[in-house]
Simulated assay, not measured.
Amino acid sequence: MKIIDLIKSPKPTLSFEVFPPKTSQNFESVRAAVEEIAALRPAFMSVTYGAGGGTSDFTADIAADIQDKFGVPALAHMTCVSSSREKVHAVTETLKAKGITNVLALRGDLPQGFDLSAADYRYASELIAEIKERGDFCIGGACYPEAHPESEDSMTDLRHLKEKADQGCEFFTTQMFFDNSILYNFIYRARAAGITVPIVAGVMPVTNAAQIKRIMAISGSALPQRFVRIVDRYGSDPEAMMQAGIAYATAQIIDLFANGVPAVHVYSMNKPEIARRIMENVSSIIA
């Protein structure tokens, strides 16, 4: 099933992200976590993709398992910035062979010292156009409610987002955010800029204080004071922080659905317990 059809269905859509192992030695432990999350019957699951396609085989294998063995639609990530055109062609053929029709097309992070001008792909919009030509894929893309860290300003960021939609991107999934008003403002500005495709809200449950530094380094997301107070109060108590982080993410999700956001994608970090608790908290809302 294509993700766009799920997102456009009348009921709210809750999905989870998982990531493949870096080496084959960890494949079975990751697969076990994926199976536990799939057993929760989310609307779909996405599988991330290492820089330069380093885990592309694992990504395709896990996505195929999610669909074929667990019966959950899969969304395979694909990054392009340090991949050759031949690599991208090979990955799309692998996905087609495995029956995977949903792709999240991303530029990916720039490796240190990387010469972007010499790359086969400089922007995600180029990858989207390439994938569109190579099969009947449902293509999603990424968006940044607080603007991409490398963008000149929010208007430039929206212009690039519109380019991705024009190239065939059918939905966007947001970077994590911790204040829903930021997303609502972003959606309003995106619609005003002529971007009409669905926007899926990406939510990260923060369940340990150590995640905060990494989150800030990756996304630069603004941290509301109410969230900072939770981390300050419970960050030194692992069980309390997990409970509080899941409660905060759950409150975000309920508010998003109540305000008409059609789909929420949870960055569950391969942790079935987090996925299970969130699913239980909103089970009647998404039923």
Rank of each mutant, 00 (worst) to 15 (best):
residue 211 Q to R: 11
residue 199 I to Y: 01
residue 220 G to R: 03
residue 199 I to R: 07
residue 211 Q to W: 02
residue 225 Q to D: 13
residue 208 N to P: 04
residue 173 T to L: 01
residue 224 P to T: 05
residue 165 A to Y: 01
residue 176 M to F: 15
residue 177 F to P: 12
residue 212 I to H: 10
residue 227 F to V: 04
residue 182 I to W: 04
residue 177 F to I: 01
residue 212 I to N: 12
residue 167 Q to D: 06
residue 153 D to N: 12
residue 202 G to P: 01
residue 186 F to H: 08
residue 214 R to G: 15
residue 224 P to E: 05
residue 181 S to T: 11
residue 221 S to L: 08
residue 186 F to C: 05
residue 208 N to I: 07
residue 191 R to E: 11
residue 216 M to H: 13
residue 196 T to F: 06
residue 181 S to L: 14
residue 168 G to L: 03
residue 171 F to V: 03
residue 196 T to C: 02
residue 177 F to L: 14
residue 216 M to A: 12
residue 211 Q to A: 06
residue 185 N to Q: 09
residue 209 A to R: 14
residue 189 R to W: 12
residue 158 L to R: 04
residue 232 D to L: 11
residue 199 I to W: 01
residue 182 I to H: 05
residue 186 F to V: 01
residue 161 L to E: 00
residue 195 I to Q: 01
residue 223 L to Y: 03
residue 172 F to D: 02
residue 229 R to T: 08
residue 164 K to T: 03
residue 212 I to P: 09
residue 187 I to K: 08
residue 206 V to Y: 03
residue 192 A to Q: 12
residue 191 R to K: 14
residue 150 E to C: 02
residue 200 V to A: 03
residue 160 H to D: 11
residue 197 V to T: 09
residue 213 K to S: 14
residue 171 F to R: 01
residue 183 L to V: 03
residue 223 L to V: 14
residue 189 R to Q: 13
residue 211 Q to G: 12
residue 235 G to Q: 12
residue 230 I to V: 09
residue 207 T to K: 04
residue 212 I to M: 15
residue 226 R to K: 13
residue 190 A to K: 09
residue 155 M to C: 15
residue 201 A to N: 06
residue 184 Y to P: 08
residue 217 A to N: 15
residue 195 I to K: 00
residue 229 R to S: 15
residue 207 T to C: 06
residue 161 L to Q: 03
residue 200 V to G: 00
residue 204 M to D: 07
residue 157 D to L: 01
residue 231 V to L: 04
residue 232 D to Q: 10
residue 233 R to I: 09
residue 193 A to V: 10
residue 154 S to K: 13
residue 197 V to A: 07
residue 172 F to M: 06
residue 176 M to V: 13
residue 234 Y to T: 14
residue 191 R to Q: 04
residue 156 T to Y: 13
residue 174 T to Q: 02
residue 202 G to I: 06
residue 216 M to V: 15
residue 156 T to P: 00
residue 199 I to F: 02
residue 150 E to D: 11
residue 218 I to T: 12
residue 189 R to D: 09
residue 195 I to A: 03
residue 200 V to R: 00
residue 162 K to M: 03
residue 154 S to V: 12
residue 202 G to Q: 02
residue 200 V to M: 00
residue 223 L to G: 05
residue 189 R to S: 07
residue 153 D to R: 02
residue 231 V to G: 15
residue 178 F to L: 11
residue 168 G to R: 04
residue 167 Q to C: 10
residue 229 R to K: 14
residue 183 L to I: 05
residue 217 A to W: 05
residue 228 V to G: 04
residue 217 A to P: 05
residue 231 V to Q: 10
residue 178 F to Q: 07
residue 190 A to W: 01
residue 220 G to N: 00
residue 234 Y to D: 11
residue 197 V to Y: 00
residue 168 G to S: 04
residue 202 G to H: 01
residue 235 G to W: 10
residue 174 T to C: 07
residue 208 N to H: 13
residue 171 F to D: 06
residue 210 A to C: 10
residue 152 E to P: 02
residue 214 R to F: 08
residue 151 S to R: 03
residue 195 I to C: 01
residue 154 S to C: 07
residue 201 A to R: 04
residue 229 R to Q: 15
residue 221 S to T: 09
residue 179 D to P: 08
residue 163 E to Y: 08
residue 160 H to E: 08
residue 230 I to T: 13
residue 193 A to C: 03
residue 178 F to D: 06
residue 171 F to L: 00
residue 180 N to C: 03
residue 204 M to Q: 08
residue 234 Y to A: 08
residue 181 S to F: 12
residue 171 F to A: 00
residue 214 R to N: 12
residue 207 T to F: 09
residue 157 D to K: 04
residue 163 E to L: 11
residue 211 Q to V: 06
residue 203 V to R: 04
